[in-house]
Amino acid sequence: PPHSTALPSHFMKGAIIQLATGELKRVEDLQTQDFLRSAEVSGGLKIDSSTVVDIQENQWPGFVTLHFIVGEQQSKVCLDVPPEHPFFVYGQGWSSCNPRQTAQLFALPCHRLQVGDVCISISLQSVV
């Protein structure tokens, strides 16, 4: 079964996030550009576009299974997460399967994550 640990507190509204540029921002103030710029200067990491193609109830209570198509290679990746887990959607910001629960737990304003949303994810930069 997936780990049923609580989500880390970096999703809590007001949490201080350090960008790769050294700049500090609150988690709720982050924008798409912050992630893109951070990946640019971090070296070794790259941002992928991960499109949500399916959201399913999980066999384990309290979890949902998200299906993504990731990056240029269009790889299929599944992720088991609690419904309150926030993902950063391009041009939209924080989004979760259950925004109400996210607000209760983290006070983080969220949109509802939907099939077709394009999330920000990271992977290792391939060395050519």
Partner: peptide, 25 residues
């Protein structure tokens, strides 16, 4: 005297999932 409180700072990459595409053959 008030003890200074330390504030946790989290790295940006801890906020987004690491979704590694499987390597092509």
């Amino acid at each position: 005297n008030v003890e200074p409180r330390s504030v946790a700072v989290f790295p940006w990459h801890s906020l987004v999932p690491f979704l590694a595409p499987s390597q092509p053959d």
